[in-house]
Nucleic acid binder design. Structure first.
Length: 573
DNA sequence: GCCGTTTTCGGCCCGACTGTTTTCAGTCG
């Protein structure tokens, strides 16, 4: 078992099992931290194990290193199996329910002999739970609600979808009377590709009407919690939204605190403790009377007070940003305005919705200097892949449009050429030669084993006419798992062959994953941020791609489509 | 179970809300 995710999941589960046993909470957290450390590992696990470097990873000590190694080598872990046997499986299921923790789950199991979620539902429906000591009618009702909620909501949402829901709420919040400051926080602000809920923070000295507005009937499908300064609702779309209201003079600290990540905050707190201050969501508190914290007015000032350069929200994952900021080495991240065009866009000739002209027109409106057209190749029958004749016809049309200077935006001719199962390309060299650029990608035989699919992609990267690789793993977030392709080997092959790797900006792809980019770019990998647009509206997906590039520490210099037209043309020749 | 400029033992974040209590335990973020 070399899949990090599988092993991390087992460690995570061990944490939950220990929690049900009533273990030391810090031991539980050690397992959770270990699982997270494993997920964030940007190297191949088997390599780290082979070189005996697991304990170098922060959060993994001797014990966890041994457990991970055993799991990787044998696929089993006796300690885990023993632990699992000692806990009835229903307890694990129960703590997945909102509002139900280990103590409650155990009590229900012991007193009512609950063996399944349907037992639990039955007991609640029959009013048996309310009769237990320490329980009441409300708890019973909440349990039934939690069972329903779990069925209907997966509690995971694409960043783009969540933002579309959050943005108008933020706008309304800002317009409310008494709201001095308002901001989106949490993983949404950190631009994580998947978020679990929406976090809003408001600075105000009269919270009551704001909380009333937030929790009003028309807004939420249901109210999860409502206090004076903290409230949670479930929106009609199923996503949970939290609001926290703080006094205006505490807004800055709360903004830092609720933006997170949790791990980033813990690192900040321990750093400030070293400087003699205890940090919380309400501010700094001097341990001795002598220390005086400098006044600060914004996040830049906040980080400066800890002798750190400013850390943009996207980087706040405790993956090296604190160390970098201490040395003044936070890079100037790429911005939306740096983008001057894009490749990988489709027209109605294959599976796009809009015509070539409509696409160029929109690119012109966006003030792009260039637009690459890359319809599917002939093997992608399901996507209306172009025959050789059709493709060459399109090339002629584009050339004519360019010559006539019909648009201010220059159009590059290209293709999204299938990498066939054996690694060869879907068009002959003779055809590919006539294009300005060639994107290669996989759309079939996605479930090949690691060796085969990695070799297949590398072969395509070695093809002299290949320009860039699109959606490296073919993953569809929340829908389809990534292929088994070995990402690090592909990064190395792309660098060796001077090929570009795409960040696919489609909100459900965002592939290659941001966790690999920092190191890959350091090694010299060049990126293209592409919208993979299938309609004029989707050209804006390039911005979702920029978000991910920022999370991957990329600068303007790492991204090919920040170059002006002249230089890009030179690069493609 | 992890970690170490308070360093191999003893810390490890803590405040808000809910529901059931009548002063607080459990859950969550």
């Amino acid at each position: 078992m070399t899949d990090k995710q599988e092993i991390a999941q087992i460690l995570e589960e061990m944490g939950s099992l220990l929690e049900l046993k009533g273990e030391n909470p810090f031991r539980i957290r050690a397992y959770q931290n270990g699982a997270r450390a494993l997920l964030n590992l940007d190297e191949e696990l088997s390599k780290v194990i082979e070189e005996d470097r697991l304990t170098d990873v922060e959060g993994i000590g001797d014990h966890l290193a041994k457990s991970i190694t055993t799991l990787a080598k044998t696929g089993r872990l006796p300690e885990y199996e023993k632990l699992k046997k000692s806990i009835p499986p229903i307890l694990l299921e129960m703590i997945e329910l909102q509002g139900l923790g280990p103590k409650t789950a155990k009590a229900l199991y012991q007193k009512l002999k609950i063996k399944s979620i349907s037992d639990l539902k039955k007991a609640a429906t029959e009013g048996k739970i309310a009769k237990l000591k320490g329980f009441g009618a409300k708890t019973e009702k909440n349990i039934l609600k939690a069972i329903e909620d779990q069925k209907t909501h997966q509690n995971q949402y694409l960043w783009f979808d969540a933002m579309e829901i959050a943005a108008p709420i933020l706008k309304e919040l800002k317009e409310l009377k008494g709201v001095k400051q308002a901001e989106i926080c949490g993983s949404l602000r950190r631009k994580m590709e998947i978020v679990g809920d929406l976090d809003f923070l408001v600075g105000s000295d009269e919270p009551k009407p704001i909380m009333d507005w937030f929790t009003s009937k028309k807004r939420g499908a249901s109210i999860i919690a409502k206090g004076a300064t903290k409230g949670s609702i479930r929106l009609h779309s199923g996503i949970q939204a939290d609001l926290r209201i703080v006094p205006t003079d505490q807004f800055l600290y709360a903004l830092i605190y609720f933006t997170g990540s949790k791990e980033h905050n813990i690192a900040l707190r321990s750093l400030s403790l070293k400087k003699g201050f205890s940090l919380s969501e309400y501010g700094f508190e001097a341990k001795d009377k002598k220390s005086v914290m400098p006044k600060m007015k914004d996040e830049k000032g906040f980080y400066r007070s800890l002798s750190l350069s400013y850390i943009p929200p996207e980087l706040r994952e405790n993956l090296g940003e604190i160390e970098a900021a201490a040395k003044g080495k936070i890079p100037k991240l790429i911005e939306e305005g740096d983008i001057r065009g894009s490749f990988h866009n489709h027209t109605a000739e294959s599976d796009g919705r809009n015509s070539l002209q409509q696409m160029i027109h929109e690119a012109e409106r966006l003030k792009w200097e260039y637009l690459g057209i890359s319809d599917h190749s002939k093997s992608s029958v399901q996507a209306g892949g172009l025959s050789e004749e059709k493709l060459l016809e399109q090339v002629e049309i584009i050339k004519k449009i360019n010559r006539a200077k019909q648009f201010k935006t220059h159009v590059f001719t290209g293709t999204e050429c299938d990498i066939l199962p054996n690694g060869s390309l879907d068009y002959s060299d003779e055809i590919l030669k006539q294009l300005d650029f060639v994107i290669v990608s996989i759309h079939s035989s996605l479930r090949q084993d690691e060796k085969t699919i990695t070799k297949r992609i590398i072969k395509a990267l070695e093809h002299p006419l290949t320009t860039m690789l699109a959606h490296l793993t073919s993953r569809l977030l929340l829908k389809r798992a990534p292929s088994l392709a070995n990402i690090n080997k592909i990064i190395d092959a792309a660098i060796a062959n001077k090929k570009i790797v795409e960040i696919n900006g489609s909100p459900m792809r965002l592939d290659m994953d941001w966790r690999y980019w920092r190191k890959a770019a350091e090694k010299g990998l060049l990126c293209s941020i592409n919208p993979d647009a299938h309609s004029v509206e989707q050209l804006q997906f390039v911005n979702t791609g920029v978000n991910i590039a920022r999370k991957g520490w990329l600068t303007k210099a790492d991204v090919i489509n920040t170059l002006p037209l002249k230089e890009v043309s030179k690069f493609l020749n």
